[in-house]
Design a protein around this nucleic acid. Structure first.
Lengths: 213, 213, 213, 213
DNA sequence: CATGAATGAGGATTCATTCAT
DNA sequence: GATGAATGAATCCTCATTCAT
C-alpha cells in the first residue's frame, strides 16, 4: 500500500514495483492457503515475477511470510492504537474501537484468515505480537480502570472486569472469526447495514449489561 | 467400524488396534499442523504403524482427514444436540449450552484448532456441516422465539434478536478461538475456576443486557 | 480349461477351483495390461481370492505369468502341431493352417495381446518357445520342401522359398496383430464372414502368386 | 519446440540440450519396457539429468510418453505421406511404400517396439492416430481404385480389393512385427541383403498373385 | 534486476510379498 | 486352504532453493 518507494520503472509486468507485487500476491496466497499450503511458484506467477526474484528480495519464504504479516497487520494495529487516544466516555471508546476494527477487517479480509490460522498455531509470533502490542497499548488497562471506576461510582453493576473485556472483544472480533459459520446458520453477510447493526448491538448489549439498575 | 476390538494384543505397538491408533495420531497431527502441514510419516511413526497401513485403512490422506473430522466432531455435535432438548428458562438453556461446549472444548482441545483452520477455509465442509446441523437443530430458532416472546411480554428490552444470538455465540465460542491471545494479553488460561468465571460472566452480561429496565 | 482336478469344494466364491479362477483372472489381467502393468490385487479381487492365495499357489507373479502363458499357448500350439500331420496338397495344408490359427485367435483373443507384447520383448521366453516349437515341428521345413519340389516340377515359379513362407505367415498372423489398425482404416472386424473372406484371400493370393505361368 | 538449440554447452552432461536428451532416453526406455515398465529414474540417469527436470519439461510421465510418440512417429508418418504422392504404376507405388517403411523401421527400431505394445492396447491413441492418418492420406483408397481399374481392364484377376490391401500391408509391416519370431524359426535378421530380398519377394508375390492369367 | 535451468531433499503413494492366525 | 494385517522397498512427484548468465 505505501511501498511504491523505489519506483524503478520495471521492465515487463504490472504497474507496481516487483517487490510490492510479490507482497500482494503473497498476502493472497498465504491468507488462502496458510503458510504450509502456500507455494512459491504460485506467488511468482501470480505476481508476474520470476521465482528467483522472490529470493532476491526476501531470501526465504519464511521471511516473506513475516514481511507479509508485518505489512498486513501494521496498518490495523496503528489504527487501533490511535483509536484509543481520544476517548471521552466509555461508550464512545467502545464505538470507536468497534468502528476501527470493523473497518480494517472489511478492507482487508485476509487479516482474519491469517489470524485464524495463527490462532491455531502455538507460540505464533503474530499472536504474540498482537497480544503484546495490545497490552502495551494500555487499552485493556485503561478500559479496566474506567469500568472499575464506574463500578465504584455506582454507574455500573459490580461485574468481573476482566471477563467484561473478554466478552467485548469476543463479541466484536469473535464474530468475524465465526462469520463463515453465521453465514450458514443465519444467512448473514458482510453487508454494510448488517455491520452497522452488529456494532450497535454489541455496544447496546454491553452497555446495558454492565449498567447499574 | 470394528476398531474397538479391545486389546487383541497386536504384534508390535500400543494397546489399541492399528486403525484406531492411526486416527488418534492423525487427530494430533492435523490439529497441530493443519491439513497442508501434516506429514504421513509423522502420523505413521507416532502411531507405531507402517506408513503403508495408513493407505490400507484410509486410501488417502484426504480421506483420513475426513475420518478424523468425523470422529472428532461427532461427539460434540451430538452433545450439543442433546443439550437443547430439555430447557425450561432461557437462562437455564444458556447455561446448559455454555456447559456443554466448554466441556468438549476442554476435553478435546483439538476441536478448536481444527475449527480455526477450517474457518479460514472457504467452502469448508466441516463448517458447512456444523452450520447446517446447528440450523436444523432448531436451537437458534427456538432461542429467537423465546427472546421475542420475552420482548413482547415486556421482560426483555426490544433487542435485535439475531444479533443477540450472534453475541451470545461469539462470547462463548469466540472466546475459545481467541483464547491464545487473551492468554498473552490478560494472562488467562483454561483453569477450571477461570472457565466457571467465564461462563458466569457470559450469562450475567447477556441476561442483564437484554433484561427490561 | 481342464484344471478342475482337485475339486476341493471351495468354501466361498465362484464355481471353479480357486487356482483355476486365479489363472483365468490372470489371463485377463496380463493380456490387458502386460506383465509390468498387471497388479496382484486386481487378479485377486477379480478371481474372488485372497491375495495371499496367489502366492500360496504360484509363489510369485513371475511364475504366475509363466503358468498363464503355458495355459494360454499350449492349446493353440498342439492344435497347430496336429494341423500339419495330415496334409495332402499344399493348398489343403495352407487352408488347414489358416483354419487352425484363426480358430484359436478368435477363441482366445488374449493370445494375440500377449503375443504382441512378447514380440516387443527381446529374448522373450514365449517367443523363443513358439519359435522353437514351430521349427521343431518341421512345418516350415516340410513346406519349403514341397514348394521347392513344386518349383522343380515346373508347377511353381522359382520363388524364394523362405520369403514365401514369411509372406504366408505374415499375411495370416500379421493380419491379426495389425487388426486394430485395419479396423480403423478399413472398418473391418472379426466377423465370421470377414474371417472366411480373409482366409480365402490369403490362399488365393499365395497360390496364384507362386503358380507357374 | 526450441530443443534443437545446437550445442549451447550445458553445465554437465552430453552435448545436446537437456530436454532433447530426456526425449532420447525416454524413447529408449519406453520402447524397451513399455509405458508401465518404464522408470523415471532410469530416464533421468540415462539422460544425465536431474529427475525433477523431467517434470520441469514434461509435467508428467504420461505427457512425456505422448511427446515421445509424437517425436518418434512424426517422421515416418510424413515420410509415408510423401511416398504416395508421385506414383505412376502400381508396382512402382508398392515398391516405393516398401522402401519407405523399411527405411524408417531400420532407422528407428523403437517404432516397431512401441507399435507392438500400442497394438495390444485397446483405444490406443497412437493406433488411432496412425490409422486415421492412413485413411485420410487416401493411400488405401487410391490403391483400391487402381486395383479395381486393373481388374476392369483385364490386367488383374478379380481379387477382393480390400483383402489384397490387407495382405500387402500384412506382408510388409506384419513381417517386422513378427521378425523376432522369424529370427528364431528361420534364422533371419535385418541384414540389408535380406531386407532387399524381402521387399522384392513381397512385390513379386503380390504382383503375380493379382496378375491376370 | 531478471531469467531459465538445475538440484537435492522431502513427501505421498503403490506394490509385491510375507506373516500370524 | 484361507484371511486380514503388516512390511519394506520402490517409485512418482513436488518444492524450496540456488546457479549461471
Amino acid at each position: 500500500m505505501a511501498e511504491l518507494s523505489k519506483g524503478s520503472m520495471p521492465g515487463k509486468t504490472g504497474q507496481a514495483g516487483a517487490r510490492e507485487r510479490i507482497v500482494q500476491a503473497a498476502i493472497s496466497e498465504f491468507s488462502q492457503n496458510g503458510q504450509a499450503g502456500s507455494r512459491v511458484d504460485r506467488i511468482a506467477s501470480e505476481s508476474g515475477v520470476n521465482k528467483a526474484m522472490i529470493y532476491y528480495y526476501f531470501s526465504s519464504t519464511e521471511n516473506l511470510y513475516r514481511q507479509v504479516i508485518k505489512e498486513l497487520f501494521s496498518a490495523p494495529l496503528t489504527a487501533l492504537r490511535r483509536s484509543l487516544e481520544g476517548h471521552e466516555s466509555m461508550e464512545a471508546a467502545i464505538k470507536q474501537i468497534l468502528d476501527t476494527h470493523s473497518e480494517f477487517v472489511l478492507d482487508r479480509p485476509e487479516v482474519i484468515k491469517i489470524l485464524l490460522r495463527e490462532l491455531a498455531n502455538p507460540n505464533s509470533e503474530i499472536v504474540e505480537m498482537i497480544g503484546g502490542m495490545l497490552r502495551e497499548s494500555g487499552l485493556p488497562g485503561e478500559f479496566a480502570r474506567r469500568l472499575t471506576k464506574g463500578v465504584e461510582r455506582g454507574e455500573h453493576r459490580p461485574v468481573n472486569v476482566r471477563q467484561a473485556i473478554i466478552s467485548l472483544v469476543s463479541m466484536s472480533i469473535g464474530y468475524y472469526l465465526l462469520s463463515p459459520m453465521f453465514a450458514k446458520v443465519l444467512q448473514t453477510g458482510h453487508l454494510p447495514t448488517f455491520i452497522e447493526e452488529r456494532k450497535a448491538a454489541i455496544a447496546d448489549l454491553f452497555m446495558n449489561g454492565v449498567k447499574a439498575r
